[in-house]
Amino acid sequence: MNDRASWLRYGVNHDLQILVIEPLFEETNRCRKLVADTMRALDALGVGSRLADLPGTGESPIDIADVRIADWRDAIQGYAPALVASFRGGALVDEAASVGVWRFAPETGIRIVRDLKRATLTSADAALYAGHALDEAFLAELEAATPFPLTRLRTVRLDSDAGEADAKVPGSPLWRRAEPGEDRELAATLAADLADWAKQCVGS
């Protein structure tokens, strides 16, 4: 057992292992099923994966108000990952991979912060950002963060997304959906792309 409390792992016995970084804040819940379905599909394709723990999120005992972006980057570094797959805002802290990074619909910090601030426009409690008691300094840090440019990088986006990508795939932007949803076909497509890429990365 590793001393880090990664609560979701699939295919621990496969040679190829990928560290997965989920979307941030509200998008975590909205995409939880998509990420889990993708990890399960990866297992079926002979690739193992584990979910990264970011301090102040999920099961973490640390208060999000005490967290800085550097803490998240340190946490990822702590896994010493060869291959990382990041979803949405997870791309802001994924650069620790020693071999390669695969990104799905990467998002910039400024747009993530704008979404959080917008959620306060029609909210009863303006002090909470989409239910998160976030520190202003943290928001400023997040606002300035952009996905780190990497040489060994593959970017996949939805075909409705105008952003640059190595591949565009059909599917729904589940991170926008009010109630957490699922898209199994998208998960299968992502897992197939990710498994091919991971095998190429270590084979060459």
Binding site: R114, L116, T120, L121, A130, D161, P173, R176, R177, A178
Partner: peptide
């Protein structure tokens, strides 16, 4: 009921993008 504060934020951002 689906259209809560966070969904409003998503709605505005997605409208901007499209």
């Amino acid at each position: 009921p689906e259209l809560d504060s966070m969904a409003v934020a998503s709605l505005l951002t997605e409208l901007e993008d499209r």
